[in-house]
Structures are given as C-alpha cells and as structure tokens.
Write a protein that binds this DNA or RNA. Sequence first.
DNA 1: TCGTGATATTAGAATTTTCGAATATCACGA
DNA 2: TCGTGATATTCGAAAATTCTAATATCACGA
Lengths: 109, 109
Amino acid sequence: MAAVIENYWVTVLKALAHPTRLQIVIELLQGTKCVNDIHDLLPASQANISQHLTVLRNARIVDFAQDGSQRCYYVCRPELVAGVLALLRNEQPERKGSQPSVLATHNQR
Amino acid sequence: MAAVIENYWVTVLKALAHPTRLQIVIELLQGTKCVNDIHDLLPASQANISQHLTVLRNARIVDFAQDGSQRCYYVCRPELVAGVLALLRNEQPERKGSQPSVLATHNQR
DNA sequence: TCGTGATATTAGAATTTTCGAATATCACGA
DNA sequence: TCGTGATATTCGAAAATTCTAATATCACGA
C-alpha cells in the first residue's frame, strides 16, 4: 500500500541525486531562473541542462512559467528541497557521535 | 569548494534513492536489525541486501555492530534519515498550492 | 578441527542513466 | 514570412547501476 507513495519518494530522491541537478535546484532556490541563466552558471551544455530540468519536472520538484520565448524555472516544492538541503548541511560526515544502544532493540532470532 | 561537500550529499541522496534501500532504512529506523531480519522483511536475496547495505554503509547512512556471527545494522544518522522521510511524508504530490511570484525575481537578460 | 548459520564478495549479464551531437520546435520582431 | 534567440527532443554510445548465481569468509559450538 505504501509502495505507490514510496515510488514517488524514490523518484524525488533519484532526481536530486545528481550533481548537476542538485546544483540546479540550489540555484533555483535563490530565485527563478531561465534555462540560459542556469546554463551560464553550470558547466553543462544547454541540451543537457534541459534534459535535467525534464527529470526534475517529472519528479514535480520544479516547474516553469513561460515568459515569452523563455521558460522561467522555479522550485515548486521549496519546503521539501530546502528542508533536505538543510538536513544535509547539518550533517558532519566525520563526527561519530553517540551511537544508539544497538543490541537493546534487537530481537534475537 | 562546495564541490566536495555536495559530492557527499549526492552520495547520500543516491544511496536513499532506491526502493529496497529506502525500505531498509525505514525498517532500521524502527530498530536495529541483522541482515537476516531484513531479509525476512523484504523481497530480495540475502546477497542483494548485503550489497545494498554496503552502499548505505559507504554513504555513512548505516553502520553495524558485530554480535557474534551476526551484524546488527542501525541508522547512524537518524536525524538526517528521519528528517528526509518526514519531509517526503509531508508532501502532497497532487496539490498545486500557491506558486511564487515567478517573474519578480528573474533578471531579464 | 569440522560443520553450520550468518554474511560478504565476485563475476557477468541485463538494465538504466547519462551525455554529446544533431535536429526540431517555438515565440517574436523585422 | 523569415530569421533568430531560447529551449526541447531524439538518437546512440558510453558509463553506471542492479541483480542473480556461485563462492568465499567468518564466528562459534560439537
């Protein structure tokens, strides 16, 4: 039953799990940008950025507003994306911290 | 400069962006489990689950404590993982909501 | 030390993702 | 209507991921 929902979650996570796409959403969180703006900021071809934007759009992470011949992209789930980024920023990959009482919650078989 | 950090972020996101691995961390958030426990819960082979656990371990999302011949796995960044899941749960993929003032923040080129 | 349960690793095929090159579409002004 | 700037799509090839089957390792008790 949760399978459908989790498929969507996986789609969202997969969409964010790429260096270029993560950069795109980080930039878009700063403000709406058209494809050429993004192209100027990132080391990728226009076609490639367009492809990545399609992936992000299919995951319903970004959307765009047509502005003449330009498409102004924006993050349509800012709380989600900013939230995930905030969580990642708070992580210190090196700090080990206090580990949970591992064996306590484990039912021996 | 931020590239190194974001590489780690992408590693984390990529590790979570798989149905089986997402299921594994969801289960592990409920409590420490050994490989066989996970194997009983999910429709995947032992070898495959072991492989997925390696991916999660490389991303520093899970770790294990050796307990005799068993390895008790647990989420070693519960705030991060639970946080991401909470954000995903709060999302209604269908709701459109109020869109930001798209054109306002966009510098015309 | 041998057997066994628990887990990991390896190898290779199948699938998916990614990207560049080329081309198509689309909006608009001359 | 034509040209052009802006963006999307298509097509393969290359790279990465995923899975299965087989095998290896490891801890422990008889």
